[in-house]
Design a protein around this nucleic acid. Structure first.
Length: 602
RNA sequence: GGUUCCGUAGCUCAACCGGAUAGAGCAACAGAUUUCUAAUCUGUCGGUUGCAGGUUCGAGUCCUGCCGGAAUCACCA
């Protein structure tokens, strides 16, 4: 019994190795045989590449291909084969496909389980990790959807996965919004103003940045300072640094404001996390890990890996590794970003002891993450090797990078709301609200709006930067989450009708394939476990997203060209019902791994 | 300036880790609905894969050089 494309490929590889052994007395490792999906322009399902065999100098590719084809035919794996140049194109036998769909239909769990890795591992994923001085924006959403989806995918292939979120809740940037709040006389609350806490604090941050910008410009103009000098000398900046020193000194009045403001942000975040489906096993706070980070700095000093400068600051010299000198502790003894990361890394290890620790962080921090891993390695930390930076590309706007400071950001809550509203508008325009209660419709709009948003961000290879154009917004047609959801709704609809009409198949039923599109769909189905493994191995939900789209497109062709319920004779109808059912199951399962829901009706 | 990453159709993205004639969507145009949901389907148009070499049976993919873009090299996070 074959369950998936991997097993089919393995069978073919084995057959090739046996032919080489029997006919040419050449031992050839089966796994070295390259098998691919046959190009759509040619007849066949799988293709054996014969070129590599030429190096064995045992004959022409046509002859070797002929022998392999014969053997596979004899083994009842293929029904037909053609050798073209160095390609041996194989058409798998109907019998194999019949067994495949019957078995998969009956033993769905086994089909899914065939995607399990040999060695499950404990994997920790850190994602999202926002600053507590501003609300989430589109970039956070890419990060969040990537992390949340990756966790699902890794679980689906059998790993043990935990997710954590680190709040960057301390630092100079946090003090900026605090400073603005204090300047305003510590008046007003989010409740009073009727806005979410994270937005309330974010507005203060922007207010501060404006003030700072003004001061810098004035200093530059009046005193002829460089931009950098002006920034350090600006009264607002000095006030913030002073505030930060007081924070690290744990002055109660500063801590009180800090706690109050952070609490507002967490309340706002909680709402957003719920909307977007971000769930974590544990939260970390830099305000709680930086002291551990300082202890590690001390440890490094004792081991002679770090250097203390005369002014008191601590650094590490990485120039021999092709990097620079990195500061680990300021001269006034306060911690920097990486100090905190050292502490957090240590703490996570003691909490979860993962084999692999994935950090979902933007590629702007490639250098930082390289340094972090290197330092931990130099310190001889056992977990250093398992650190993996999943570096994803920025979400750019046509005008360039999003910058909170300059206010040109796409706000996460806003874009979600917009998407949901658009979904509502489209559903109403298309007249598809019938038969659904107001509550069901509300739910549908959310599923559609958020689905389109998530799919948009997940379909692109994580490593590549991507562009979001607010003018064009996100489509609901074509290569979109909506199209996939729509395909699922159609499948659900036809299956409901099949049930109503009592089109249930008997156990002795033998599927028949009469159209090429049916075979294309089966071929697509059998790849699901392989795709899952690939997406997991490459940490890429995009691979899965593109696979689902391909299936939805195939099914739409199928739907347009072939009748399902009314097909005659009944065996054909039943075969197509199974195909529809399996396609629906794969779409639904895979979409859930992308954290996208699929509707039964739309 | 050093380091790293990226250049594929007008636009947004693919291309199964070196395989056959580089594929989708959007946009534009032309068609398809007495039949299971037209948020769909079919067709047309659209390419010197930034440029130049190299490696080999075979290169968008690998190596070198150039051109163009981005990130980073903070006592910011």
């Amino acid at each position: 019994m074959v369950l998936n494309s991997l097993q089919i490929k393995a069978k073919i590889q084995e057959a090739v190795a046996q032919v080489l052994e029997k006919h040419y007395s050449i031992p050839y490792p089966a796994e070295k045989v390259s098998i691919e999906k046959t190009s759509p322009d040619f007849e066949g399902d799988f293709t054996v590449l014969l070129f590599p065999l030429l190096k064995l100098k045992i004959g022409k590719p046509e002859e070797i291909g002929e022998k392999i084809g014969k053997y596979l035919q004899y083994e009842d794996i293929v029904s037909n084969y053609v050798v073209i140049k160095g390609f041996l194109n194989l058409t798998l036998s109907d019998k194999l496909w019949q067994n495949f769909i019957l078995f998969t239909n009956q033993e769905w769990e086994q089909f899914l389980n065939s995607a399990h890795v040999e060695k499950p591992q404990k994997i920790l994923i850190e994602y999202l990790s926002p600053n507590t001085n501003k609300p989430l924006h589109l970039g956070h959403l890419r990060n969040g959807f990537l992390g949340a989806s990756l966790a699902q995918i890794l679980k689906a292939v059998g790993h043990q996965v935990n997710t954590v979120c680190l709040f960057n809740d301390k630092g100079v940037h946090i003090c900026k919004s605090m400073h603005a709040y204090m300047q305003n006389g510590c008046t007003h609350t989010p409740q009073e103003k009727g806005i979410k806490g994270d937005h309330f604090v974010g507005d203060l941050y922007v207010q501060f940045e404006r003030l700072l910008q003004e001061q810098i410009e004035t200093l530059q103009k009046n005193q002829g300072l460089s931009k950098e000098q002006a920034m350090h000398q600006a009264p607002a900046m000095q006030a913030v640094q002073e505030l930060y020193r007081r924070w690290e000194a744990q002055e109660p009045e500063v801590l009180d404001i800090w706690k109050k403001m952070n609490q507002w942000v967490y309340e706002g975040f909680e709402q957003s996390f719920e909307t977007f489906g971000f769930h974590f096993d544990k939260y970390y706070y830099e305000s709680q890990t930086y002291t551990l980070g300082k202890a590690i700095v001390q440890e490094g000093l004792e081991k002679g890996i770090f250097i203390q400068k005369p002014d008191g600051s601590v650094t590490i010299d990485l120039t021999s590794e092709g990097l620079d000198e990195k500061i680990l502790l300021r001269s006034d003894g306060t911690s920097v970003y990486i100090t905190q990361d050292l502490g957090t890394a240590e703490k996570r290890y003691y909490d979860f002891a993962p084999h692999i620790s994935i950090y979902v962080i933007g590629n702007e921090q490639d250098y930082h993450m390289k340094v972090l891993k290197l330092i931990l390695q130099k310190l001889g930390k056992p977990y250093a090797q398992g650190i993996y930076h999943l570096s994803y590309g920025m979400v750019d706007l046509p005008s360039g990078r999003m910058k909170t400071r300059e206010g040109n950001v796409v706000d996460a809550d806003e874009i979600a709301q917009e998407m949901i509203l658009t979904a509502q508008k489209m559903t109403q325009e298309l007249g598809k609200t019938e038969g659904l209660t107001p509550q069901e419709l509300e739910k549908l709009y959310r599923i559609l709006g958020l689905g389109a948003l998530k799919y948009f961000l997940l379909k692109v290879d994580p490593q590549k930067r991507m562009l979001f154009n607010p003018e064009e917004s996100i489509d609901f047609k074509g290569h979109t989450g909506t199209f996939i959801q729509y395909t699922h709704a159609r499948i659900a609809s036809v299956l409901r009708k099949a049930k109503e009409e009592n089109l249930i198949f008997s156990s002795t039923f033998e599927p028949i394939f009469t159209a090429p599109l049916e075979k294309k769909l089966v071929l697509w189905l059998c790849f699901y476990p392989e795709i899952l493994l690939q997406a997991a191995a490459q940490y890429s939900p995009a691979i899965l997203a593109n696979y689902i789209y391909e299936g939805a497109r195939l099914f739409s062709n199928f739907w347009a060209e072939l009748p399902i319920l009314r097909a005659q004779p009944a065996e054909i109808a039943q075969t197509r019902i199974i195909l529809a059912s399996l396609t629906g199951k794969v779409i639904s399962h895979a979409m859930h791994l992308l954290c996208i829901e699929v509707p039964e009706k739309m």
